[in-house]
Design a protein around this nucleic acid. Structure first.
Lengths: 252, 252
DNA sequence: CGGTTTATTGACCTGGCTCAATATGTGTGG
DNA sequence: CCACACATATTGAGCCAGGTCAATAAACCG
């Protein structure tokens, strides 16, 4: 069973390698992790609020969202997880879910037992560190969302969300770009603290810069989108070496 | 020098013990951490954006804020750090600051070298885990801030901020409560994505429930404040045992 | 006591929300 | 391949929570 999942685990390893320097045996430990494929339908809960989890979930295809809500039941998406993301890596250390995880479109995931991650981490301190570091990038993203929702106007919020999602999916070139983005306008509203009506109107004003087509985004002018978004990718730490020391576990 | 700092490190250890089960030798390792006292004036940067840090900073007295801003220079506070908090624990694993850290009032901190935290973590995997777990609680708080700013009205936002800060400072009783809160209305505005004018007006409507006096908060009706805030403390994980397994590092 | 923050209030404005109708997809079973 | 059922997108009209601008008043700090 683990065998056909190796290609998917490689995606996760690639992600870790983006920000951490791992030895070959450590990399091998990642590829040898047991993993169980699962599918989640659009709008179905994958992890419920308060649930005790025993797995971390690697997103293979589709998108997972982390949800919060207020007393009136208005929903707020607090995080998006695209393919290659370990959606609830933090659960390894804090298994009780403090927010629900739901699929925004049909999503294929790979469940990796906490126990396996824990024992691999115990055997390879540098791996524990790499996992911790990846969690911290997620936290930096969260921090940007606070700024986005707190201090940007409608166009800026949507533009920023699109820039971030593009970069996280590995979009590199500038100019015209297209990438996967299976969110409805309602879900975009929930992610940006807006209303679907206003998302619709704002997208109209952004038409010359970006358009949503089906389940993907067409960026017509990346530079302008970045300007509108006031976007600086530094916080995503996708550039190895940008963070200085990437291997601190010395095992001394 | 480390000697007179032991009492302060004890505060940090108490914090860790809230959420993790540490052996005596692991606790001792925390208390033996080298630490250098420092002071930061109100509104002075403690860590600048993009700076490479070599220390984590334990807040002893005062309050530290994490700042972001948009293209127009409007500031947004993304996190508050009260006494007992390790303000930038994540820097151990990601030394390049993705946001600035500034004192909101005169603040006394204890600088703990990354190197010391790293070698203690290498020697005691359970300690590494405890540090990682504490970072994850900070992330859960961040997640709540997104909901707060995205989906609550002015009164709810302020009430929630006050409830959270009270609980994090260890406020326990219900009914009338008072606690330290040295923020200006301007800083409250920056933390809630509002305007200081509107913070002022909103506080007026909350007068029967809570008032700000000098550098502290007087809660007249805790139950009502919690109701207004739509506050549920579960995410703070202050209740040991609430999270299930608190010691996963087995060293096997 | 003088200078500088911080708080408070008024008057007015606007970005984004609400409510509600209509159009356009999209997936399903026959 | 069609037609229905349901989800999603689009648009109009009107409103309001919270913003802006600007002037005082308090409070704080040496």
């Amino acid at each position: 069973m683990p065998h056909q999942n190796r290609a998917d685990l490689q995606v996760f390893l690639d992600r870790l390698n983006l920000r951490s320097r791992l030895r070959l045996d450590e990399q091998q430990a990642v590829l040898n992790l047991p993993a169980y494929a699962a599918q989640v339908d659009a709008n179905a809960d994958h992890v419920a609020l308060g649930e005790m989890t025993e797995f971390a979930s690697l997103v293979v295809t589709g998108v997972l969202g982390r949800f919060g809500q207020n007393a009136q039941g208005d929903r707020q998406i607090t995080a998006l997880h695209v393919p290659g993301d370990m959606a609830n890596l933090q659960s390894v250390v804090e298994p009780k879910a403090t927010s629900a995880l739901q699929a925004l479109s049909r999503t294929k995931i790979l469940k990796i037992p906490h126990q396996a991650l824990q024992s691999a981490s115990a055997r390879h301190p540098a791996l524990a560190e790499a996992l911790w570091r990846d969690c911290m990038v997620d936290a930096a993203i969260l921090s940007q969302w606070v700024v986005n929702i707190g201090r940007r106007d409608a166009a800026g919020r949507i533009a920023h969300l699109l820039c971030e999602t593009a970069m996280r999916q590995g979009v590199r070139q500038i100019g015209a770009v297209s990438f996967d983005f299976p969110l409805t306008q309602n879900q975009i509203a929930d992610a940006t603290g807006m209303t679907s009506v206003h998302v619709n109107r704002t997208l109209k004003t952004l038409r010359s810069v970006v358009t949503l087509a089906g389940r993907s985004v067409q960026v017509h002018d990346w530079t302008e989108l970045v300007r509108q978004a006031d976007f600086d990718a530094a916080y995503l730490q996708r550039d190895i070496g940008s963070g200085g020391k990437l291997r601190i576990a010395t095992g001394d």
